[in-house]
Design a protein around this nucleic acid. Sequence first.
DNA 1: TTGAAAGCGTTACCAC
DNA 2: GTGGTAACGCTTTCAA
Lengths: 340, 340
Amino acid sequence: MPTSKDVAEAAGVAQSTVSYVLSGKRPISEKTRKKVEAAIEQLTYQPNAGARALASRKTRVIGLVIPFIPELHMASIMEFVSVIANTARQHDHDILLVTEDEGAPGLRRVVGQQICDGLILMQVEGNDERLPVVRSLNVPVVLIGIPRDPTGLVCIDADFEMAGDQCVRDLAAAGHSVVSVIDWQPEVVDRHVNYVDRFMRGTDKAAGELGVTVLHLPGGTDRDVIADSVDKALAKTTGSPAFIAPDGTVQDLLRRVLSSRGLTPGVDVSVIGSASPTLADLQPIPLTTIDLRPAEVSRRAVKIICQLLEADSQGPHESLELVPTVITHRSSTLRPPRGA
Amino acid sequence: MPTSKDVAEAAGVAQSTVSYVLSGKRPISEKTRKKVEAAIEQLTYQPNAGARALASRKTRVIGLVIPFIPELHMASIMEFVSVIANTARQHDHDILLVTEDEGAPGLRRVVGQQICDGLILMQVEGNDERLPVVRSLNVPVVLIGIPRDPTGLVCIDADFEMAGDQCVRDLAAAGHSVVSVIDWQPEVVDRHVNYVDRFMRGTDKAAGELGVTVLHLPGGTDRDVIADSVDKALAKTTGSPAFIAPDGTVQDLLRRVLSSRGLTPGVDVSVIGSASPTLADLQPIPLTTIDLRPAEVSRRAVKIICQLLEADSQGPHESLELVPTVITHRSSTLRPPRGA
DNA sequence: TTGAAAGCGTTACCAC
DNA sequence: GTGGTAACGCTTTCAA
């Protein structure tokens, strides 16, 4: 493999000149720049990342801590991962995977060994164990998810409260007076991933303002549980029923149960599921969906951390960013009650 | 951050001794080892990855090239990614994400800059554009998927032929004389991802041997297409119908169409879907599944590349490994024809 | 506008 | 069994 020394010799300049041509941190005459670029081309030179990191104290790598919870709708996790990796490249950074299995020690490891310059944590819980470690780490960290106490942390997430609000408002506008929310799965609720609470706050607030009744019912991947929830909802509903199922893993099940009860979404029952545009296209049945904007959240997370890295931020930055959610009606699946 | 020099001073030994204590490449007396370990502990020393890579010419990082095809069942991609990352850690390596968007230049980049020591490519197509580059790369590469010409390459994949064979055999044993295979989605088929062909070879071979008829029908995420396929299958089927739907994205749709035709899997129609044990648990409806072993394929891919890295393999290695697939019957969902 | 040289923190070879 | 020291390939300061 050619080194910058080789390039320097080939171009008849000093090694430092090669470095400056590449970094642009110093004005270079057109003539020598041409020579150097030609030599680089010629030798297919690529700078050695290790040496560069050693000398510059920057790896241009961001650690991404991914959750592995089978219950957690892996498709949407993958969407985050994928967009994060792509966005990072656009900012001339790479993504190193850190699995949640490694826990807090894993964070200390990648930062301590200076494998990466900063971290993005996905699926941050309300009372995340890793927060103390994160605060003690002397590198920029961006959290996806809002912990109970975000003091001194940089957080970003979809605006779940807005999402809950929008769902109820749209259903109310379609004439429903009772709206049933199928909860996230128990595994998620138990973890106190606090977007659940935020979503519910949104639904309840809107319900209060609009005089609509909101029922909260258990979700999960167990058909019987969903069936039970649906039946309870139907029993308590006057007029045509409406469901909100923000958890991706619940939606199929819900539709199946509804259909077994003789109800067709968009005809005699309104259903709002959640789906990003990407995943929504794969949904075979048109549905009204609430887009929790995973792609936008991902992009912003990367952008923020890259800014922090540029700034070489030492001061304890702190911020909390909520990405607006969007409801999309694909076909007309929200129908007013039959008699209306 | 403390360096090995600091540790050496604290322990009263030479810097090289610290290095040898850590690497174990040289016998160390119990006494000095203790001293060094104490100092490391004391200073919470962690070796600098860049410096280490520079000196040892090994990064202990493996590049993982992930596909981003929304059609491609992101949940299963995520399963690969997750298992690969975990397994890599068990072998003391990290995973760097390389997105498919970067294409062949991306491969050259991460290898050229020596960001990683080797590569794993997912979703390798029959006639993958990246193969020439892969062959020219002077680092170990493991392909997940079998290209048309695997000469000089190290490949691993599930044994799709075996899978096709097993599916047909099990359905034949359950008394079906006509078996309908719902194809992968056109996007996949068009890409000549040749596991499709291999699967079909398996079904057809078994069909020939057992005197069973196999129908191949279009798949996809379009409900009408699936409905059409199902109707065609039903029209051509004598006795009770049987379906094989190896594509994860097709399965829900298939079940929905079947139910709209008044058919219940496990009662009046046999259905074999594909699912790893992890994902199968999330399937709300018990189904007979063919496990294409993504986790096992992932683990082996990592193991292989780590072996190649250890061996510091220069010679053009070559191998092709097929991981056996497994059919699992969850509840009794394969039923012989009613009259049988 | 350019060059020379001193690090950056390891590893690994050569002595002892 | 241990210490000294020369790389490893880059960035950046200091001089010119």
